[in-house]
Nucleic acid binder design. Structure first.
Lengths: 245, 245
DNA sequence: GAATAAGTTTCAGTATATTGAAAGATAGAC
DNA sequence: GTCTATCTTTCAATATACTGAAACTTATTC
């Protein structure tokens, strides 16, 4: 995948501004996004011309305008698909007190579509757009199980990476784990994706799209409450499938 | 300007999603952003791979994830330059009851950096990232006057476009208008940029950067209150330059 | 105020992203 | 269950965006 290069670079640029959080000179920006100076200049010029970047007074660098923000706001506000899920997810977050996540299969990974972080100070924290491995995340397991033999074969073609020390890297072991989850109706990861994090997940269909929905939190808290949390999760799934199916 | 093509296309794509507000099929998206299907495919693939787009169930198209939104939020929250201006601008908007705008010179146009829309139903409405002509907008006149002879020459090299029927298109007339504004300390447009809109603006320096700040509203309302509004505008300028200079 | 350093811009050759056309999937119709 | 229309993906030729080096600015130092 080497096409749309400058599009990818533009995203890197915005991500860099987000990470640095301050105006950047061309000569600072170029190495940060690993782009030759002259190419970076062309990219910056394009974004200036389109109103996505503004130049501070000479020699003081550039920063994104609010144009990207208002655009992203408009886009997010019109995502009717996720919007319809929102009330159910909010309730689940409030009832569980933990972070609630919606993910989908993208390529051979889970793509997080929505993350509603719980109210606690110590909580599972992630962002929409993050990718997680199929074999180590709770949603990943749920989607893997729902994805059938074809998906399993794609995944098993390569060795399973060890994300943490607890990650299941043996295919046979993972298969057992998935079958167990399928029997129970929900899937669990205990520190397999992030140390000290336990998550439970299940798959569901909304308007023909297969989603994974999860409750995730620190293992010490999840351990005590896992039965109640599982009840809430499965309850939410039923409600969503019934109302939105 | 023909470089960074795919970056520009990616922006067009996001703008199209914002305008359409619904998932789009590849075959819908490609003509909307005027890109060949195969190129559009490459672009979409890149954005999928980076987590900025998600695919609905097969054949139901794509839509941006919230990743762009959270990123833009982070970036906007860290714009310390505009952030420092915010309290002054908010006060000005509240006191004037009209839309307050901050713009800067970008190329040969005004780039809107911040727009705080007034509370009234009929109000001047615009977005950050918008470009406005130098010769017909109030901020444009303020920046044009501040920009000196060099800027004037660049502008006068081409004929002045007639944005509305009231736009001043005669350079000599415009010069008089600018001189008058420079004497008074503020610049006015009466339906020259948008019919029925009157705006007043002045230039100021904040941390070495020349900005234009404006109050804009429907002419019928601005006509009655222009003296009070001008007082507020110039007051705000003094305060900002004194505190942030 | 001259010299120096730092940042910005330009340009032609070249690597490479883009394209059109055709093959490959997939969902729904019959 | 087969067919058909529609959408998606691939691929090699080509147009073009990218690069490196050098010139040009503009701020800062001495």
């Amino acid at each position: 995948m080497a096409n749309a290069r400058s599009a990818s670079r533009a995203l890197s640029m915005f991500e860099t501004f987000g990470a640095e959080g301050r105006p950047l000179l061309l000569t600072e920006l170029a190495p940060l996004i690993d782009v030759p100076l002259s190419s970076c200049h062309g990219l910056v010029r394009t974004l200036l011309d389109r109103g996505y970047l503004y130049a501070l007074s000479r020699r003081r660098g550039f920063y994104p305008t609010r144009k990207l923000y208002t655009l992203a706001q408009t886009i997010a506000a019109k995502d009717s698909y996720l919007q319809r899920l929102a009330p159910f997810l909010e309730r689940l977050r409030d009832d569980s007190g933990e972070t609630v996540i919606v993910g989908t299969l993208q390529g051979e990974a889970v793509l997080y579509l929505e993350v509603l972080e719980g109210p606690k100070t110590i909580r599972y924290s992630a962002r929409p757009g993050d990718f997680k491995p199929l074999h180590s995340s709770a949603i990943g397991k749920a989607l893997l199980s729902a994805g059938g033999e074809a998906l399993w074969k794609k995944l098993a073609a390569r060795p399973l990476s060890d994300v943490t020390v607890n990650t299941i890297t043996d295919p046979a072991h993972l298969r057992d784990n998935l079958e167990e989850g399928a029997r129970r109706g929900y899937f669990v990861t205990r520190g397999e994706n992030v140390s000290d994090v336990t998550a439970i997940a299940t798959a569901l269909e909304v308007e023909g799209m297969t989603l994974g929905i999860a409750i995730a939190g620190p293992s010490y808290r999840m351990a005590e409450t896992i039965e109640a949390q599982t009840g809430r999760l499965l309850q939410a799934r039923s409600e969503i499938e019934e109302r939105l199916g």
